[in-house]
Design a protein around this nucleic acid. Structure first.
Length: 285
DNA sequence: GCCACTGTTAGCAT
DNA sequence: CATGCTAACAGTGG
């Protein structure tokens, strides 16, 4: 569930509450969550201070003193929650960090167990596949570079938006939402976009992502920020999850199709495949 | 009970 | 190389 706006929301809510805290202890309840970590690093983490929280695509980076970093991915159902240590843990809480002088603790919950919390030495970060292979940040990309992402690409436009190596952080919800606002069909061939369509898409991408961040992301089912609060952007969705409901633009029923195996919601009237004008015909002599 | 579906993506097939 | 499909897991809803 968590895409760029949700991850950004978590990072912001955590940054203001745990930056500067010192690790007192950790607890691993399900080892799968910490896969990829050299087990020896955990004792090094104890006593270290949190220097900085940041986001790269959908990845969360928590930097500590002594050159250690926690790399966290929420995947589908992961949550990072700052809760009172007295609160009972449920069976989906897989990892916990406790801090010096604090009774509350940071818990990683993940119903589907796809997510991970990996501790690494900060200097290896740039070489890690999960970081190295990420495309540019959508909100830091100028229009010209944005256009090049689609040039000569054979696949579907929506699949390209979801490709983390092309653009980092866009997921199923926001791909559908930005396509609707840009009036583009999800099955459009990525390489068929021309300047006007690219401009609409670039502007829609920026508008949707920034608005979603402003509203704390979308809570369809599991998403919560670090205080447990839901996002508010789901009530502003125009197409995602709205099959058979009227399109806010024209009133026609929103349809659902599969694109690259992912559910895709769109309005068949507002979102036409970009049609290149037929050449060599209808010349007005 | 069974089946389809779910916000991600690594890994494999084509 | 580029692109497409599926499994990994657990829960929910029809």
């Amino acid at each position: 569930m968590p895409e760029l706006p949700e991850v950004e929301t978590v990072v912001r809510s955590l940054a203001s509450t745990i930056t500067g805290l010192t690790v007192r202890s950790h607890r691993i309840s399900w080892a799968g969550t910490t896969r990829g970590t050299d087990p020896g690093l955990w004792k090094e983490l104890c006593g270290r201070e949190i220097l900085r929280l940041s986001r790269r695509g959908k990845m969360i980076l928590m930097e500590f003193t002594a050159g250690l970093t926690l790399l966290i991915h929420l995947k589908m159902t992961g949550q990072l929650l700052l809760v009172p240590g007295r609160k009972p843990r449920d069976k989906h809480t897989h990892f916990i960090l406790r801090f010096a002088g604090r009774t509350d603790e940071l818990r990683f919950r993940d119903v589907r167990k796809f997510g991970f919390v990996r501790c690494v030495r900060s200097d290896v970060l740039p070489g890690l596949r999960e970081i190295r292979d990420l495309g540019p940040e959508p909100l830091e990309l100028d229009f010209r570079s944005f256009g090049l992402i689609f040039k000569n690409k054979k696949g579907r436009l929506k699949s390209r938006l979801l490709d983390q190596k092309a653009l980092a952080g866009i997921g199923n919800i926001y791909a559908d939402e930005m396509l609707h606002r840009a009036r583009l069909h999800p099955l459009t061939r990525a390489g068929s976009l021309r300047e006007p369509e690219l401009k609409r898409l670039w502007k829609s991408m920026r508008r949707v992502l920034r608005e979603a961040i402003k509203h704390g992301g979308s809570s369809i089912r599991d998403f919560r920020d670090s205080s447990g609060a839901e996002g508010e952007f789901q009530v502003r969705h125009r197409v995602y999850g709205r099959e058979r409901l009227p399109c806010p633009g024209c009133g026609l029923e929103i349809r659902r199709i599969k694109v690259g195996g992912r559910s895709s919601y769109f309005c068949a009237a507002c979102q036409k495949k970009a049609r290149r004008p037929a050449r060599g015909r209808s010349r007005t002599v």
